[in-house]
Amino acid sequence: MDVQNQAELLDKIRNNLKRVLDPELKLNVVDLGLIYDLSLVEERVAAITMTLTTPGCPLHDSIVSGVKYCVEEMEEIDRAEVQLVWEPAWSPDKMTEDGLRTLGRL
């Protein structure tokens, strides 16, 4: 896959991830700044490094499995490897402008 196609696919994955909403904040994981890294480790295998707003978040399992499902259901992807990390810790500056606007911060 050439660089351009790879970049397009990553954008597509990122957009698809916007379907995973934090039900408490009504905000998707991308605009919330939870997705730290997104890459293709093999042609049809995506690797996602993500966090949650707080360690021990009660929605831990739900959000992680939602992210995995959203990527694996794409026809271009066979497998998604999701790694949940606490360092660096999530902070509001990781949110997008859309995210901040939704929470009334802009």
Partner: peptide, 21 residues
């Protein structure tokens, strides 16, 4: 939170799920 996790955690991202509110 408890009931949402019980009922909707498996379908988050797959179908529309209600918010906590």
């Amino acid at each position: 939170f408890l009931w949402w996790t019980h009922k909707y955690s498996k379908i988050i991202g797959k179908a529309d799920v209600p918010t906590m509110k």
